[in-house]
Design a protein around this nucleic acid. Structure first.
Length: 953
RNA sequence: GCUCGGGUGGCGGAACAGGUAGACGCGCGGGACUUAAAAUCCCGUUUCCCUAAAGGAAGUACGGGUUCGAUUCCCGUCUCGAGCACCA
C-alpha cells in the first residue's frame, strides 16, 4: 500500500514525543516566554466529545507555532475535579466521588493523548488533590485576614483596620474611608469603646470588613440540589444544572467581597485583549450606575428614608416613595390602622419564590403604608408605599418614584391612581398620563431652580444642591453582588475555619491542608445539615467551597506545580507573569473569568503576584453542537406504533392537513381521527442514520429505540429522519466521540477538520460531511513525498521561481492566519498549496521541508513522519518556522487590456518597467473615461494586490 | 425593553485596510481508468438571457446614502443568535 495510513505511525510519534520529553518546559530560558492555556475540563463520566478538543486543538496549534518561532512555551493541562456531578453519582451509587473522578480523569487522559497535544504533562494539576487545595485554602485564609482599604484602593491585612479602630474608632456607615461605599450594618463606636470590647465582640465587628466573611444573606436556595447557588448558576429562576426551582432564603453564609473590586474589575477590562462581547457581558454584570443618594424625612418620625437615583434632575417630579417589602423601616412607619394590611402584603411578597416574582413581572402589586415623606425641596407631603417591584438587594431598597419619567413608577402610579407630574419636556409632545417619558434628553419644566436646563446639566446642578443641603451626595452603585462561597456539599474544598463560641476562627497556615474527611453517606443529614456534618469529630465549617474556587487560581499553579513551600515560587511567578493566550468557552464570562480576575487582583494587592490581570488575551471558541436524529411516531394506537417518514411528517405539520399518501396509509392501518398533535418526535442514536437523513432500518429495528409493534410509512425509497441542531448530550443520542474519528481517519484529520469547520469563535453543528475532503488532502499531501511504490520521490533540484512563489505565498498566509486565529483558512491554504505543487511537479526538498514545518502545528503526526522519511534525526517540532521572502511574492503587471464602459476594448501602455503577466481587463467608470477622452493626462494608477484597479485623471 | 454580534450559492464557509464576490471543502453533473464497483484522477457547478463559440444582465436580508468603485462605510427597516433584565 502506497497510500497515507495514519494508523501506521501516529501512535509511534506520540510515544516518541512523550519519551523524549519534547514538550517539557523549563522555568528559565534565554528565549522569551509565552503562556498558552486552555480552560481545564471537568472530568465527567460521559468522556470527551468532539466539542471539547476544538479549543484545545486551536491552542495547541498556537503553542506549537510559538515554539517554532523560538518562544519558551508553557502549555499545561489539568482537571477541574471537584463538582456536583461526581457527588450526585456518589449519592446514587455509593461510590466515593474520588474514585469516580480519578476513573474519569484516566479516561480523559487516554482520549486526549490520542489527539497529539503538546501538553507538558509533568505540570498536570487536579483541584481535588490535597497538595493543590491546600493552596486554595491558603488563599481563602488570606482573604479572611484581609480587608479592602478604599483610600489606598487595595486589599490590606486586617491588622491595618484594627489599628484604625484602635486609633480612631468607627463613625458608622458614613465612614467612607473604611467601607468605601458598601453597606455595613454596624453602629459607630469610638476608639476607647473598641479597646474595651471583648475579643468575640471585636471579631464580630471585623467580619463586616473581611474579604471572606460570614453573614446572614438572602441566597438562591435550591431544595432539589440541597445547596445554595451563585447568581450565575441560576438561569430564569431555575438551577443551571438540572433545571430545579430555586428559592430565596435567608441563611448564614460565607461570601467573598468581590464588590470591593467592582471599579477595578471594570477598569482592568480596558487593558486586556478580550472580545468586546465578553467584556461587555462583564461590564453588564458589574452594572455600574452613577447617580446620587439622598434622604427623605418622614412625617412624624425621626428615621429617614435613603433612596438611590440616577435621575436626580427629576426630583421635582416625585409624587410618592416606594419601599421594598423587606425594607427595615416599613413596620416602624406604618401606623397601627394600616398594619394588618401592610403585614399581609409583606408576608405574601416574602413567600413568593424568586421564580414566581420574576415570571410575574407584569402584575403590579403594592400597599400604601399610611405614612408620608417630606419632599426635601418643595416641602410637599408625598405618600410612602411598599411594592415588590422594588428590589431589596439593589441600592437602598427604596426608590423615589417619578411616574412621569420612569415606566415602572408610571405603571405603579396608574394602577393605584397616584399623581403623575411632568418635569422634563422632550422634543415630541406626548401625553404624560398615558406613557412616561424616560429618555435622558430634554428640558426641565415645573422644577423651580432647574427650569430651562437640559437633563445633563440639571443632574449636576441637583446633585450640587443636594450636597449643599446636606441630605445626600453623588454616588455610584453596582449591580454586582458579593459571591456566596459556601456550598452544602461534600465534594469540594473544606473551608479552613473552626468555630469558637459560634464565632469563626481561621486555621493557622501550617494546619493546611484541611483534608476532606471520609463519610459513609454523601447525602445531607436528616436535620438538613450539609454532608460534612456526618464526619466524625469534625469541628470545622461544614459547607465546602464552590466549584469555582479551585479554578480561580490554577493557572498560577501550573507555573510551579510541585512546590510544597508556596503556591508557586516567586521566580516562577516573575518569569511567567500571566497567561498570554487563554482559550475557552464564553459561558464562563460572569463566573470563572470574573472570579479569576478578582483573585488575581487580590493576590496582586498582597504582593504575591507581579501583575493584576490573569489572562492577557482571550479567545472564545464556539460550541460544537450535536446534529440529532429525530423519528416521528404515532404511538396512540394499541395495534401499531407507526413511524412516519420525515417528509410526510413535515408536510403534515406545515399544512396541518394529512398528506394524501399518508392518509391512505393510515386508512389501510385502520386509523382515523388523528391530529398532528399525536405525532411524537423521538431522538434516536445518530449512528442509525446514513448520509443526511436516511434511516438504517435494520439497525433501528435492532436498537432499543424501536417499538416492537412498529411499522414504517414512507413515500420515497428510503425512510427519512429529521435532523435537529442542539447541544451535544448523552440524552439526545447525538454525541460524537473523538476516538471514533481518530480511529477512522487519524488524529491529524480530526485536528484539521475541526479547524476547517468554520471560524473558531462561532458555534456550529458537528457533521462529518466535509471530513473526507480533509482526509483526501492529507492523502494528496503524502503523495508529494511518496510515489506509488512507497518510495520517496523528493528531488534535490533547485526550485523554480514559480514554485518558490507558491511556497512563500503559503508561508505568509499561514503565518498571518495563525496570528489572527483564522485556522479555517489556513487549512484551505494548505490544500491550495498542495494542489499547486502537484501541478508544478514540485516534489523538491527545498520546497517541501519548509512546508512540513509549516504544517507541523496543525498536523503534527504526518509532518513528523515525512520529516523523518526525508532523512532527519531530529523532530520537526524542534525546527524554526520559515520566513517568507517578499521578493517572490511581487505580482508583475503591465500592458492592461481595458474595457471602457464595459464595451470597447483597447490596450493601454502603462509607464511601468514590468513584465506582462496575467493581464486582466479593467473596467473604467464613465466620468473617468470622459475626462480621459477630453485629453487630460492620467495622473495616478491605483494598485491593489499588484494590480491596477483604477486610474485617476 | 437595553447591550452586543450576525444575515453571502444546494450546504459549511472565503474575501486581510472599500478594489476581479463566491476562495477552499462538501454535494451534485459529466468524463477517464475498471468486466464491474470502490479508490484515484480530470472537467463543470451563483442565477437568468443568448449561444456553435464568444457575449450580456442581475446578484452578498430589504430600502436609501457616500464613493470612480460598497459584502465591506453611513442612515432606516426586517430577521436570527447571545448576554442582561422590575437595577430606580
Amino acid at each position: 500500500m502506497a497510500t497515507y495510513d495514519p494508523a501506521s505511525f501516529e501512535k509511534k510519534w506520540q510515544q516518541y514525543w512523550a519519551e523524549n520529553k519534547l514538550y517539557e518546559t523549563q522555568n528559565q530560558s534565554d528565549k522569551p516566554k509565552f503562556y498558552v492555556l486552555d480552560m481545564f475540563p471537568y472530568p465527567s463520566g460521559a468522556g470527551l466529545h468532539v466539542g471539547h478538543p476544538l479549543g484545545y486543538i486551536a491552542s495547541d496549534i498556537y503553542a506549537r507555532y510559538k515554539r517554532l518561532r523560538g518562544f519558551n512555551v508553557l502549555h499545561p493541562m489539568g482537571y477541574d475535579a471537584f463538582g456536583l456531578p461526581a457527588e450526585q453519582y456518589a449519592i446514587q451509587t455509593g461510590q466515593h466521588p474520588a474514585v469516580t473522578t480519578l476513573e474519569n480523569i484516566r479516561r480523559y487522559r487516554e482520549q486526549l493523548d490520542k489527539i497529539g497535544f503538546s501538553f507538558d504533562w509533568d505540570r498536570e494539576v487536579q483541584t481535588c488533590d490535597p497538595e493543590y487545595y491546600k493552596w486554595t485554602q491558603w488563599i481563602f485564609l488570606k482573604l479572611f485576614n484581609s480587608w479592602y482599604n478604599p483610600v489606598n484602593k487595595r486589599a490590606e491585612s486586617i491588622d491595618t483596620l484594627i489599628r484604625q479602630f484602635e486609633e480612631r474608632g468607627y463613625e458608622g456607615n458614613d465612614d467612607w474611608a473604611l467601607t468605601g461605599g458598601f453597606e455595613v450594618e454596624l453602629p459607630a463606636f469610638r476608639a476607647e469603646e473598641w479597646n474595651a470590647f471583648t475579643d468575640p465582640q471585636k471579631n464580630e465587628i471585623l467580619l463586616n470588613f473581611r474579604l471572606a466573611y460570614l453573614s446572614d444573606t438572602y441566597v438562591n436556595w435550591c431544595p432539589a440540589l440541597g445547596t445554595v447557588l451563585a447568581n450565575e448558576e441560576v438561569k430564569d429562576g431555575v438551577s443551571e444544572r438540572g433545571g430545579h426551582p430555586v428559592e430565596r432564603k435567608k441563611m448564614k453564609q460565607w461570601s467573598l467581597r468581590i464588590t470591593a473590586y467592582s471599579e477595578r474589575l471594570l477598569d482592568g477590562l480596558d487593558r486586556i485583549d478580550w472580545s468586546e462581547s465578553i467584556k461587555d457581558t462583564q461590564r453588564n454584570w458589574i452594572g455600574k450606575s452613577e447617580g446620587c443618594a439622598l434622604e427623605f424625612a418622614i412625617d412624624g418620625h425621626e428615621a429617614k428614608i435613603e433612596v438611590f437615583t440616577t435621575r436626580p434632575d427629576t426630583l421635582f417630579g416625585v409624587t410618592f416613595l416606594t419601599l421594598a417589602p423587606e425594607h427595615s423601616l416599613v413596620s416602624e412607619i406604618t401606623p397601627p390602622e394600616r398594619r394588618s394590611v401592610v403585614n399581609a402584603y409583606i408576608d405574601k411578597a416574602k413567600n413568593r419564590t424568586e421564580r414566581e416574582r420574576m415570571s410575574d413581572v407584569k402584575h403590579i402589586s403594592g400597599e400604601f403604608t399610611g405614612a408620608y415623606a417630606i419632599h426635601p425641596f418643595s416641602g410637599k407631603k408625598v405618600p410612602i408605599w411598599v411594592g415588590d417591584y422594588v428590589l431589596a438587594g439593589y441600592g437602598t431598597g427604596a426608590v423615589m418614584a417619578v411616574p412621569g419619567h420612569d415606566s415602572r413608577d408610571h405603571a405603579f402610579a396608574k394602577h393605584f391612581g397616584l399623581e403623575i407630574l411632568q418635569v422634563v419636556q422632550g422634543e415630541e409632545p406626548g401625553d404624560i398620563l398615558e406613557a412616561s417619558y424616560d429618555a435622558k434628553t430634554g428640558t426641565l419644566i415645573n422644577s423651580d431652580f432647574l427650569n430651562g436646563l437640559d437633563v445633563k446639566p440639571a443632574i449636576k446642578k441637583m446633585i450640587a444642591a443636594i450636597e449643599e443641603k446636606g441630605i445626600g451626595k453623588g454616588k455610584t452603585n453596582y449591580r454586582l453582588r458579593d459571591a456566596i462561597f459556601g456550598r452544602q456539599r461534600y465534594w469540594g474544598e473544606p473551608i479552613p475555619i473552626a468555630y469558637q463560641d459560634g464565632l469563626p476562627e481561621a486555621l493557622d497556615e501550617n494546619e493546611l491542608p484541611l483534608r476532606l474527611p471520609d463519610i459513609d453517606k454523601f447525602l445531607p443529614t436528616e436535620d438538613g445539615e450539609p454532608p460534612l456534618a456526618r464526619a466524625k469529630d469534625w469541628k470545622y465549617e461544614t459547607t465546602t467551597m464552590p466549584g469555582w474556587a479551585g479554578s480561580s487560581w490554577y493557572f498560577l499553579r501550573y507555573m510551579d506545580p510541585k512546590n510544597r513551600e508556596r503556591f508557586a515560587s516567586e521566580e516562577a511567578l516573575n518569569y511567567w507573569q500571566n497567561v498570554d493566550l487563554y482559550v475557552g468557552g464564553s459561558e464562563h464570562a460572569t463566573g470563572h473569568l470574573l472570579y479569576a480576575r478578582f483573585w488575581m487582583k487580590f493576590l496582586y494587592d498582597l504582593g504575591l503576584v507581579p501583575v493584576d490581570e490573569p489572562f492577557k488575551k482571550l479567545i472564545n471558541q464556539g460550541m460544537i453542537q450535536g446534529y440529532s436524529a429525530v423519528v416521528n411516531k404515532l404511538p396512540l394506537l394499541e395495534k401499531y406504533t407507526l413511524y412516519i417518514s420525515a417528509e410526510l411528517a413535515a408536510e403534515w405539520r406545515k399544512t396541518d392537513r394529512i398528506p394524501e399518501f399518508l392518509g391512505k396509509e393510515l386508512e389501510r392501518h385502520g386509523v382515523s381521527e388523528v391530529s398532528v398533535n399525536h405525532l411524537i418526535e423521538e431522538r434516536i442514536d445518530i449512528k442509525l442514520v446514513r448520509g443526511e437523513q436516511e434511516l438504517d432500518v435494520e439497525g433501528f429495528r435492532n436498537s432499543f429505540h424501536f417499538e416492537k409493534n412498529g411499522e414504517f410509512i414512507q413515500s420515497g425509497k428510503n425512510f427519512l429522519v429529521a435532523r435537529e441542531v442542539e447541544k451535544m448530550s448523552k440524552r439526545w443520542y447525538n454525541v460524537v466521540n473523538p476516538d471514533d474519528i481518530c480511529e477512522d481517519y487519524g488524529a491529524d484529520t480530526l485536528r484539521l477538520y475541526e479547524m476547517f469547520l468554520g471560524p473558531l469563535e462561532m458555534s456550529k453543528p458537528w457533521n462529518t460531511n466535509g471530513i473526507e475532503g480533509v482526509y483526501r488532502f492529507l492523502g494528496k499531501f503524502w503523495k508529494l513525498f511518496m510515489d506509488e511504490q512507497e518510495q520517496l520521490k523528493v528531488r534535490d533540484e533547485a526550485p523554480e521561481k514559480a514554485e518558490l512563489k507558491v511556497l512563500h505565498k503559503a508561508i505568509k498566509k499561514v503565518k498571518e492566519d495563525i496570528e489572527g486565529f483564522s485556522f479555517n483558512t489556513s487549512v484551505s491554504t494548505f490544500m491550495i498549496t498542495c494542489n499547486e505543487l502537484h501541478n508544478l511537479n514540485g516534489s523538491k526538498r527545498a520546497l517541501l521541508e519548509p512546508l512540513l514545518i509549516l504544517l507541523a502545528p496543525f498536523a503534527p503526526h504526518i509532518s513528523e513522519e515525512l520529516w523523518h522519511r526525508l532523512g532527519h534525526e531530529d523532530s520537526v517540532h524542534n525546527q524554526v518556522f520559515p520566513e517568507y521572502n517578499e521578493e517572490y511574492l511581487v505580482e508583475n503587471s503591465f500592458n492592461y487590456p481595458i474595457s471602457i464602459n464595459g464595451k470597447h476594448r483597447t490596450n493601454i501602455e502603462l509607464p511601468l518597467d514590468m513584465e506582462a503577466d496575467g493581464a486582466q481587463p479593467l473596467v473604467l467608470a464613465n466620468d473617468i473615461v470622459q475626462k480621459w477622452m477630453e485629453g487630460k493626462p492620467l495622473r495616478k494608477f491605483i494598485f491593489v494586490k499588484g494590480r491596477i484597479v483604477n486610474i485617476v485623471v
